[in-house]
């Protein structure tokens, strides 16, 4: 128990260090942290689907795109303030996730994986071809307004830092609660053994769908933040590679472990920036580092550990 307290203290210290970092980092490194924050949101949302529910999803960029385009469209066409669009982005991406997942959720691991890859590609192609005339085709949507919070206009990387990481903090809090809820326990159970879960009265299909919806909705909201930060979005920001990157983060960080996923984001998004000095060899080192990390930490950097209940002996006869 003491161990857990130290761990908690360590996390809080790290979080505080992160919170004051914009005061001594330059704009570039703050912006790298912003990028890390956005990907952390995406990875945390994929973690619900991939890590907690154990559903292979390699098309997460599709939900990210739905959210980003919803926000961008509402903002540029109807002048909806971009942060007001946040819940709408979440709802539309979540709904999209459910509609999509409903017919395919029963597919076995790798078959589901290729279906989600396919959906990601279909969405990207639809965006590029200016589907329904609302996505702007290959140009995307530009001229998205910067967000405003209580009359304050968020523009500089330092200001975005607090918006993005504030949202990450809320997400971590909510998802940690979710993990320990009935929902989280049900997901744990059905990931480890679907048959036993079904037998224990868990409606597996419904819980899997719920997981998909939560993950998709959160990715949609991350999309809204992304659109507000970039002020321009175009299909190439939602390519297959983005989905792969988010997938890598979750597995490499430690599927199912929130701290691990955030650490994974720092490594996967941060490393290519650290390797910038290598110019064209930068991705070579990145690939190498990825293999090495996976070989030495085969279950991810911070693997998911089964929950241990304090009073378990009381439950046993």
């Amino acid at each position: 128990m003491i161990d857990a307290k130290y761990k908690m203290g360590g996390f809080i210290a790290l979080a505080m260090l992160l919170a004051v970092s914009p005061l001594f980092l330059n704009a570039y490194w703050v912006d790298v942290l912003n990028s890390v924050g956005l990907y952390a949101l995406l990875a945390l949302s994929l973690n619900v689907i991939l890590g907690d529910a154990g559903l292979y999803n390699m098309g997460h960029a599709a939900f990210f795109a739905v959210g980003a385009y919803t926000a961008a469209y509402l903002n540029t066409q109807f002048g909806v303030p971009i942060l007001w669009a946040l819940p709408i982005s979440g709802i539309s991406a979540g709904l999209f996730g459910v509609v999509l997942a409903r017919p395919v959720i029963h597919l076995r691991g790798d078959y589901l994986l290729i279906v989600t890859v396919g959906v990601g590609e279909i969405i990207r192609i639809a965006l590029i071809n200016n589907v329904f005339g609302v996505t702007g085709g290959p140009n995307g949507i530009f001229g998205i307004a910067r967000p405003e919070l209580f009359g304050f206009r968020i523009r500089r990387p330092q200001e975005f830092f607090y918006l993005i990481w504030g949202f990450v903090a809320v997400t971590v809090f909510l998802f940690a609660r979710l993990k320990n809820s009935r929902f989280g326990r049900a997901l744990d159970c059905l990931r480890e053994d679907p048959v036993a879960a079904e037998g224990s009265g868990i409606n597996t299909g419904r819980y899997q769908l719920l997981a998909f919806m939560v993950g998709a909705a959160w990715a949609g909201m991350a999309g809204c933040l992304y659109a507000s930060k970039m002020t321009i979005i175009s299909p190439e920001s939602f390519s297959f590679w983005e989905s792969v990157l988010i997938f890598i983060i979750v597995i490499l960080g430690g599927a199912g472990n929130i701290a691990g996923v955030i650490l994974g984001t720092f490594l996967i998004i941060g490393l290519p920036e650290l390797f910038r000095g290598f110019a064209s060899a930068r991705m070579w080192f990145f690939g190498l580092a990825m293999m090495i990390m996976m070989i030495f930490r085969t279950e991810g950097i911070l693997p998911h550990r089964p929950r241990i209940f304090k009073n378990l002996d009381r439950l046993l006869p």
Binding site: L274, F275, G277, F278, A289, I292, M293, F296, R297
Partner: peptide, 22 residues
């Protein structure tokens, strides 16, 4: 131990990279 090795390797690579662009 392994974690320390990975971190160390990352740091060395990072510093080599930073050194190149000075």
């Amino acid at each position: 131990m392994k974690k320390a090795f990975v971190l160390g390797l990352t740091l060395v690579l990072a510093m080599a990279g930073a050194g190149l662009c000075l």
